[in-house]
Design a protein around this nucleic acid. Structure first.
Lengths: 200, 200
DNA sequence: TCACTTTGTTAATGAGCGTTAACCGTTTCC
DNA sequence: GGAAACGGTTAACGCTCATTAACAAAGTGA
């Protein structure tokens, strides 16, 4: 079992292209022939690597959810004891993910309902844990914010951070670093405002 | 030609149910038989009211975009001369729309690519004008914010406001009014933070 | 060398689905 | 009162598309 360092496995190529295509035209809008063509093989050749089209989507969504959750947990552990730092780190991590893997972030909340029941349950559970991680930290940083309000605020900030796919590609932004900084400031500002005179 | 006051036209029933179904399972994930069943007729009966499935989606998306734009223009005119008030009114209008027409807000940025070229161009143009309306007002309220940053901030706030579909239905929120107020505060807080030491 | 695995290929299958055809009862209106 | 318009119905068509079958070529290892 050789250790890969640079090149992508065929499986990984397929997943990457499938993610891009699914994000662009939706799960049902993309044919297997198209996915195959994107990696240089054609149509049914994909079935040597995946059980079916559904399996590709499942692996993508489970992978995303796991990556977000484990990354979030790691960051929470690294800055444990300093809620402000944890929140900043969570925001930073989510922004990195949103900026570096736009197709995946799009899929993440768009195509969940196309999964088999078991896969969907798994993804939802992972997502729930990720949200919970954020909610706990947010409530430590902003004790005035009650739990329902904190939960809603977290979802709203996810919406804010996940808006990057809608930001036109070309030089309309001050570069990656500037965009990341802008989103970070906005996220923190949104939380701050959520906590002011919080009734919920 | 009688004037309707309360009941929905068959056409309107169909559009409403189609919007809900499209939002739930995606355009390609819903069959015409299903849409028909949702309004009590079956399958091909829809073709007495629409040229095809595409036409329903087109009418929905164009309608949404027009509604948002005309509503925004009206609000901008009503509070003209007072940028703060205009921005608050725009935020309020967008929140009302997001809370009252969740399916539509979901469709709005999800299924645009399924449209015929001409329809897609029209929708995009309407969306662009709506964004422009916001950008102008935001720049009046926060003169420190340069245009690219303002544009990105507006998109991000749209993402924040459009997050309502992800907020679980039951009593997890402090009611409609509370949710609206929370989102409003967060949107303003996000803009405020975007403008602080704005490099872009 | 020869069997086996791996990774493709093209052709066939079969289901699902948008759309059209053909037909029918009811309203509306001259 | 009769004819068109309206708004349905079911059956059939045709296309797309995921999946499977059947087959082949290249590597791999005993």
């Amino acid at each position: 079992m050789a250790i890969r360092t640079d090149a992508l496995t065929r499986r990984e190529q397929i997943l990457k292209e499938a993610a891009r295509l699914f994000a662009e035209r939706g799960f049902h809008g993309v044919g297997v022939d198209e996915i195959g063509a994107a990696v240089g093989i054609s149509g049914p050749g994909l079935y040597r690597h995946f059980a079916g089209k559904d399996a590709m989507l499942a692996e993508l969504l489970v992978g995303i959810s796991e990556q977000l959750l484990t990354g979030g947990k790691r960051r929470a552990a690294e800055a444990a004891g300093n809620p402000e730092a944890v929140l900043d780190s969570l925001v930073e991590g989510h922004i990195d993910f949103a900026l570096d893997d736009r197709p995946l972030i799009t899929l993440h909340d768009r195509e969940l309902d196309r999964l088999r029941d078991s896969d969907r349950k798994l993804v939802r559970q992972l997502q729930r844990q990720y949200v919970e991680l954020w909610v706990e930290v947010v409530r430590e940083v902003y004790p005035d914010l009650a739990e329902p309000g904190a939960r809603a605020a977290v979802h709203a900030v996810f919406g804010l951070l996940n808006s990057t796919p809608h930001l036109g590609r070309p030089g309309s932004l001050p570069g990656r670093a500037g965009t990341a900084a802008l989103l970070h400031r906005m996220a923190r500002g949104a939380f701050e405002a959520a906590a002011v005179s919080a009734p919920g």
